[in-house]
Design a protein around this nucleic acid. Structure first.
Lengths: 196, 196
DNA sequence: CGCCGAGTTGAACTGAATCAAGAAACGTGG
DNA sequence: CCACGTTTCTTGATTCAGTTCAACTCGGCG
């Protein structure tokens, strides 16, 4: 499991800051491996999110249930993604989100304090975190633009283009939920725009 | 102008890391003051965004124009907010956004490199940046939730609650654009839900 | 004083939601 | 490996929230 993470760090840092033996040991000591079976939960509404979670293997969804009982997916996380409710982690308040494994998954978990410390003290991690934050800013900016500007069809086509690897792994209805449209609408869109 | 910024830093850091004379001087040397008249632009589509901009006074909007000629507002910025197209800054690509002053405004601008440096070397700034990033993560998470879950009315009421100070300063139609609804719909919502 | 941008209101229209019913696809246990 | 139940996807009919188009009001500014 740490091989995957190690590799991820190298990629994120363009091998510019290879990890020393010592640093690697330290990293291994602060991350907690966790296996999560399909349909099991990493976080449930009402709990306080204490960990950043790196996905070595598998697929998860982070979603919220509104007053009408409707589910809304905030994020999918597959290999080499991070998940966790950042709001709960930052504020210390109970989370409004659930994080559920859609496949059997393998994770590496780390507390916020440990993460802050290794980020501060290991150059490779610092670079990695910067890289993640930047990608996140861009992705977020684009997601908001899509949400307020696009039609249902445009939202779907944009998603396919942006996350081709996720399309194949998660049920349609969850894509619909992520996009803020109904599964019926998505089904019709797919039929109608097949081959575009 | 720097008084306002200095105050802002103190607030953001709970006075835990007051700035030394030297630090203040340094800060003054890397920020460039800029006045911008109403309807003038801080950034136009196609330009590369080079600066982080802190708003000391005034009000701006950051928006994008889609293929159909429709404007979509990504952000409003009033006193004590930061603005700028982070995507363009990070990627170095031409921006798809415009930033326009809605009122006569006074800004403090700083290049990314300078910002990175003072963030690294001045503890108060580091704390401030962390604080901003955290607020940003939370605000963003909530905005996405609102965009994919709420009805037009809920979006508006949520906006009023979240940004009561902005409501009074910007035209209705721009609020509508920010929320991803039409000005007519917003007008009807306001009439119908008056007093809620 | 006249014009222009902002906001409102009405009527017609439409994209997407809702409701309902089947058809595939999938996984699990016998 | 098949049979059964469950979940996912599709399709149709209907409804509705929100858009579009158009006309009109209001307030401010030049």
């Amino acid at each position: 499991m740490f091989d995957i993470f190690h590799n991820y760090i190298l990629t994120k840092t363009n091998n510019k800051h290879p990890l020393s033996e010592k640093e690697l040991e330290w990293i291994k000591s602060v991350f907690v491996p966790k296996k999560l079976r399909k349909k099991h939960y990493l976080l449930q509404e009402g709990e306080i999110n204490k960990f950043h979670c790196f996905v070595c293997k598998g697929c998860l969804r982070m979603y919220r249930v509104d007053e009408k009982g409707q589910e809304h997916i905030f994020q999918f996380a597959i290999e080499n993604w991070w998940t966790g409710d950042r709001e709960s982690m930052i504020s210390g308040n109970p989370s409004k989100y659930n994080i559920e494994a859609l496949e059997d998954s393998e994770l590496l978990m780390i507390t916020r304090a440990d993460m802050d410390e290794i980020t501060e003290k290991i150059p490779a991690i610092k670079l990695m975190v910067q890289n993640i934050q930047q990608n996140n800013v861009i992705a977020t900016q684009n997601r908001i633009h899509a949400a307020i500007s696009y039609t249902a069809e445009e939202k779907y086509l944009n998603f396919v283009k942006t996350y081709p690897d996720i399309i194949q792994r998660v049920p349609q209805q969850m894509i619909a939920s992520y996009l803020g449209i109904t599964r019926e609408t998505l089904s019709r869109i797919r039929k109608q725009s097949a081959g575009k």
